[in-house]
Amino acid sequence: MSRSTLRDWRDRVGPEYDPTDCPLCTDGKPVAGPYVHLLGLYLGDGCLSEGLKQVYALRIACDTKYPRLIDEAATAIAVLHPTRPVHRVQAAGYTSVVSYWKHWPCLFPQHGPGPKHLRAIKLADWQQELIVAEPGLFLRGLFNSDGCRVANWTTRSVSGELKRYDYPRYQFSNQSADIMTLCQWALDLVAIPWRMPRRNVLSVARREAVAALDPYVGPKS
């Protein structure tokens, strides 16, 4: 046995993955703001995959043209799991924000085989409590992953002259009926009206509703 291995055993404070690092394994809860933001991102563009020794990779796929979104995802992960690095993996057109941990399934019990829209997505009671405490950050995660803020326009005749009017609106699209219901519920928590132009598309279009959602979400960048 090499001396370096013996030194590693001697100097190691504890196991590489200590169960006490996970708040849920010690009857606690994750930090509400970063967690619900990351939960929104995960439900939209995230996944968990199991690797060696039951260590899971959390991957959040972010469009590379939105560096602020990437930074926020990395920051949320770092707050929740501060003892390990957060990786940014470049791919064609997107950047995966990646973190490895045995306890990611504890924080995301919605993990399971197959696409999210083909299985039930239900929140645990503790997740609902955290979202009620920070609904705006949950909406930020959802809209930053599967939503957008777009500029629409229309024309109207005023005193015989055709004038163009521009107005912003938000759209959120997801094939999962359960995730769509969660988005609707979070909007109701902050009293923002919404409508469903299609089964898989939610719209926030009224001027006062867009203004109310802007402080929570805003344009992607």
Rank of each mutant, 00 (worst) to 15 (best):
A211H: 14
Y167C: 01
P215Y: 04
L43W: 06
P30K: 01
R198N: 12
S157E: 15
L139R: 01
T75N: 12
G136R: 06
F138C: 01
Y167K: 04
N144D: 11
Y100G: 10
R206F: 11
Y56S: 12
D125F: 13
P34R: 00
G147W: 01
R140C: 01
C25T: 07
H87V: 08
D188T: 10
P19T: 08
I179V: 12
L130P: 02
D18Y: 08
L130K: 01
G33V: 08
L52R: 14
D214A: 07
R149D: 08
W194K: 02
N200V: 03
H37M: 06
I121K: 10
R59A: 12
L162D: 09
F108M: 09
A205C: 15
A92P: 03
L142K: 00
I121G: 10
E161Q: 15
P168Q: 14
W185A: 11
A177E: 14
S145C: 02
M180A: 08
R88G: 02
A78H: 12
N200G: 05
A151N: 13
A78G: 15
L130W: 03
P67R: 04
H37F: 12
L213E: 00
P219K: 10
P135C: 02
V150I: 12
L58W: 05
A61L: 05
T20R: 12
Q128G: 11
L162I: 13
G46R: 02
R7Y: 10
T83K: 11
Y216T: 03
H81Q: 15
R206L: 14
C47G: 09
A212V: 01
Y42C: 03
L213G: 01
Q90M: 12
W101N: 11
P105D: 12
S221H: 13
H111V: 15
D188K: 10
S203V: 00
L38I: 00
E134N: 03
N144A: 08
Q175D: 14
R206C: 07
V79E: 13
R164D: 07
G46K: 04
R195P: 03
S221K: 09
L182K: 07
P23G: 09
G46E: 04
V89T: 06
R198S: 13
S203M: 02
L69D: 06
S4E: 11
W185E: 11
N200W: 05
R7A: 13
D214F: 09
N174Y: 00
P168E: 15
Y35T: 01
W194T: 00
P115A: 06
N144P: 04
P215W: 03
I77R: 05
V201P: 00
D18C: 08
Y35L: 06
A191F: 08
W101Q: 07
S4I: 11
R207A: 15
C183D: 10
S49F: 10
D178N: 14
E16F: 12
A209V: 03
L48P: 07
Y170F: 07
K29N: 13
W9C: 14
K53L: 15
F143E: 00
Y216M: 02
K116L: 13
A91T: 09
K220P: 05
W185V: 09
